[in-house]
Design a protein around this nucleic acid. Sequence first.
DNA 1: GGACTCTTGGTTTTT
DNA 2: CCAAGAGTCC
Length: 712
Amino acid sequence: MEEMLRKLTAVQREAVTHVEGPLLVLAGPGSGKTRVITHRVGYLISRGIQPREILAITFTNKAADEMRQRLAAMRLRRGSTICTFHSLAARLLREFADKAGLVRNFTIYDQADQVAALRDVLKTLEIDRKNFPPGKMLGHISNCKNDLETPEQYAARHSDFKGKIIARIYTAYQKQLEKNAALDFDDLLMRFALLLQKDQELRDLLNRRYKYVLVDEYQDTNHCQYQMARGLTLNHGNLCVTGDPDQSIYGWRGADIGNILAFEEDYPQAKVVRLEENFRSIPEVLNLANSLIRFNKQRKEKKLFTSIASGVLPELIEYDDEDDEAHGMAQAIKELRQGGLEYRQIAVFYRVNWMSRVLEEALRQEKIPYQIVRGIEFFQRKEIKDLLGYMKFLSNPADRVSLKRIINRPTRGIGETSVKKLFQYCDNTGRDLWETLTGIDQVEVLGTAAKTRIKKFVTMVNQWRAKMEAPVAELMQTVYDQSGLMAVLAAEKTEDSAEYAEELINDAAKYDATTEAGSLDDYLQQIALFSDTDAYDEQAGVVSLMTLHAAKGLEFPAVIIIGVEEGLIPHSRSMDTDKELEEERRLLFVGITRAQQRLFISYANNRTVHGANQATIRSGFLRGLEGLEFRRESDFEDDWDFDNDFSRKIGIDDDEPAPGFKTGELVRHGKFGIGRIQHTITSGDNPRVVVNFNSAGQKTLALKYAKLEKLD
DNA sequence: GGACTCTTGGTTTTT
DNA sequence: CCAAGAGTCC
């Protein structure tokens, strides 16, 4: 351990070795944050803390996996809990199901399930889907849950026409989920946060269980997650959070950047460590990132610097249209490869998923191998949803959404009307769905034909239920076969569907092989909480394509960002407020700071939207950037004077120190006292120096105004 | 009840 | 342009 600590910088070591009490690690991109967190876990263990007393909360399952591997590589004792907020909540809600008033085998609803459930609700409430679209309604509901607001509270707060209706929808939706023994993503967090709030006994128990809690990507936590982190550490206060306000990109789904910005006020005893040295990118990339993010007002001033050697200027390329852009980038990838990079070292980012299409086409034509990092796409396929629907219903026979999905797929002559009657019967008599199904003879509203068919279905399901303890893949294979799904898929013109279904069974087999105490419930939970980035395979040896959101936490020697246009970045649906605009800018910042060496940014003057060609405008974010090499690959000549609008000068350190001051020199400031120059910024006509003052901390000072006195 | 065609609306980002 | 929903026919 001692040796490992020696390899860290002084600031990193500070973060690793601060054991007791709240700790805020403000970590810039590429500052070795992951390393610090893993080392911190290692350090705690080396100090005699039991591994099982440590809880590390990551943003994705992928990040959790990686962390586990790193810890394993450090050959530490295992047993720490490393997972995401969602899986932690799911796990603990199962463990303390009684306290939470839940059944242990609850189902987790994904977006499609939520929509299906909400549609049913709207139908029974006889609310028009056009005026109250399910997606929008779910958005409202999600916001409420993220703020821990129950349907009752929402209803009490709204007396206007629309608010009242939404309150009715929210209430009925919750009832529906309850009936189905299902929780949506937000419920997981909300239910657990509320439980933690009101159940002191449980809180004490968990505070004793997890004595040290670490939360990564804290800038993207919402109110529920904030409450969870707080509740889990209330008794001992050993909460370490890490994050970067400049990389907060999930505000739209409830993430509150205020959580990290106000951490010090929230936890006055908190120690704050800033990791500002970047170990990832060449100064040219960092300079560009800095010159972009400085336009944001909602932030903590922070200057990124690096001692990595200078490289090539990032390029900005203009194209005529998206086809040219895609082919141009394919060309760039080829050139990068000739320059010695491997495919796996190159990534392309875009704002919206549909932008991958043109790109794929171009890459296929140019025979460049690629992967699209979109994990959940697989699980959104119809055949996968069908097969999983069976599994979900087996796991939780109260789940109407799943039953509705599978009872007539393949067709068994049990139509919509029969299902509707069945559900109505349950609602009217208050009887359990599965109970009703097994005693279907008593349901007078159904005809004999329907009853016979349902009985047959129930017999089939019962046979599977007898095998619930079997390995998941085995059970799934049986279901796939005996349900008739296999025959249906095999009969389809394209073989894709059957292949996908088999891929799912293989995935289950992998789960069986790697999980010791696996169960169907647990497998389904893992799948439900699968994320896009989880699909990123760094071993694949291919170019990676992904959205800017999915790029978070990753790094690549070469990065290409396409479609940097008004309406895309910033996206047309989030450019109304400064808050939204700043988040969009942060998104571009995240993209830029993924690059280690080479960075290409591009836009096209025309783009096909809705099948029609539209003229586009380069993103306003590009204005005022420093350190870009501009290249025009389009015929179109506008009156844009790049050299006037942009500055090609780059200013991080070394080459041109600010007049009279050098990195490392001791200086005195009238107000801040004595400090040492961290680095100098010479870009633009406003040379500045970043100084670490002994008492006042780090400050960026304009030489024009600040009177600095040299000391040595 | 189910398979088919036509119309229409609409493209963020995701656990 | 493309997916989902309504409408139509067997």
